[in-house]
Design a protein around this nucleic acid. Structure first.
Length: 334
DNA sequence: AGGCCAGAATCGTTGGGCAA
DNA sequence: TTGCCCAACGATTCTGGCCT
């Protein structure tokens, strides 16, 4: 839970940074200028500047342990203005808003009075202070599809490559491991409705898609008919599923036709995580025990971030390795 | 002590407005 | 036009009092 919160927070934080309020006195102490150009190196050097501090904070490292700019999430992903040519007062950010196109970079700039400001660096090196300016530069409105590669990077920072394999090796018995189905044995279905129309809704949808794609699979989106075009515009593999229950049934039928295991997931999951905790009996409506156990596991480093594919493989292996009567349905705690 | 709740405080986002 | 701040608002987190 803690980590999930961290993830959502970091998603939301992608554009945070402007509200570093300072008193007039500290502004004077810092340098005093009302405005600072992107090229003006702040007094005391860039490494002592508020922007440097903010970027380090956002990455979660000590300011002296700053990763190189090209390794930070704000760096242009493909094409874009070379980081070497970025203005001296604009640092590559450790975050990236979810709609930022690959050839844009996200930076943190020191303001004259000693604050910080999030800016976006266009492919020609132009500095933008607002989303609509990015859109003008781009010549069209952005969607969450523009930021999908940035989202991949973010997901991969949480679920490291090979995480699933290590997880299955560690947490399944030898007998159970024999029953781990390959990814293509699953039919992954996401039941969703009316989430692709607004930029806000798109964020969650694309995060779920990114989790799957990072694991090398593409889920099928079962959506409401009026939204079909909007989901497809996000490059999602979408079909009309109708209301919740018909959509769930359709997904089951589709999976059965293909002879695959059906996996259904919600459309707003930020992270799949396995907590290694003792089996709980009679939790009933009182979740205190469970929450305490989860906290303990988290603190002990026994909270394992995995992909939805890894989660499905784990459950399938557990079910198939069980003695008769074997379970036919498994799920994760939401 | 720990849980729960509500109100307070803080955080995060957005876009307008204004000064240089 | 560029650079900066801020109001406004919704969301989240904190806090303190009350209850078990």
């Amino acid at each position: 839970q803690k980590v999930v919160k961290k993830v959502t927070k970091s998603l939301r934080q992608a554009k945070r940074g402007t509200n570093d309020t300072r008193t007039a006195a500290s502004a004077k102490a810092y340098g005093g200028a009302a405005v600072a150009s992107p090229w003006a190196v702040p007094k005391g050097g860039i490494k002592k500047s508020p922007a440097w501090q903010l970027v380090a904070d956002r990455i979660g490292v000590h300011p002296s342990k700053m990763p190189p700019p090209e390794k930070r999430l704000g760096a242009p992903i493909k094409g874009g203005y070379p980081i070497k040519k970025w203005p001296a007062n604009v640092l590559v950010d450790g975050e990236r808003v979810f709609w930022l196109p690959d050839n844009f970079g996200q930076g943190v700039k020191n303001t004259g009075p000693g604050g910080t400001y999030i800016v976006w660096v266009g492919p020609e090196g132009r500095i933008h202070y607002h989303r609509h300016e990015v859109e003008r530069d781009l010549g069209r409105p952005v969607t969450a599809l523009d930021g999908i590669n940035g989202l991949f990077k973010k997901v991969q920072a949480w679920v490291k490559p090979g995480a699933d394999a290590r997880f299955l090796a560690r947490k399944l018995s030898r007998a159970e491991r024999k029953h781990v189905p390959p990814a293509e044995d699953f039919h992954f279905a996401v039941v969703s409705a009316r989430r692709a129309d607004t930029l806000d809704g798109q964020q969650g949808v694309m995060l779920v898609e990114a989790q799957f794609r990072s694991a090398g699979v593409r889920p099928t989106w079962y959506v409401d008919a009026p939204s079909l075009a909007a989901y497809r515009a996000l490059s999602l593999d979408a079909k009309v599923g109708g209301k919740l229950t018909p959509a769930r049934n359709l997904a089951l039928e589709d999976a059965a036709k293909m002879g695959k295991l059906c996996v259904q997931v919600s459309d707003d999951i930020s992270l799949w995580e396995y907590y290694d905790i003792p089996k709980m009996e009679n939790c009933g409506n009182d979740f205190t025990q469970c929450n305490a156990a989860v906290r303990e596991a988290d603190d002990a480093g026994q909270a394992i971030a995995i992909s939805p594919v890894g989660a499905a493989q784990f459950m399938a292996a557990k079910m198939r390795a069980a003695v008769e009567p074997r379970p036919r349905l498994a799920g994760v705690f939401p």
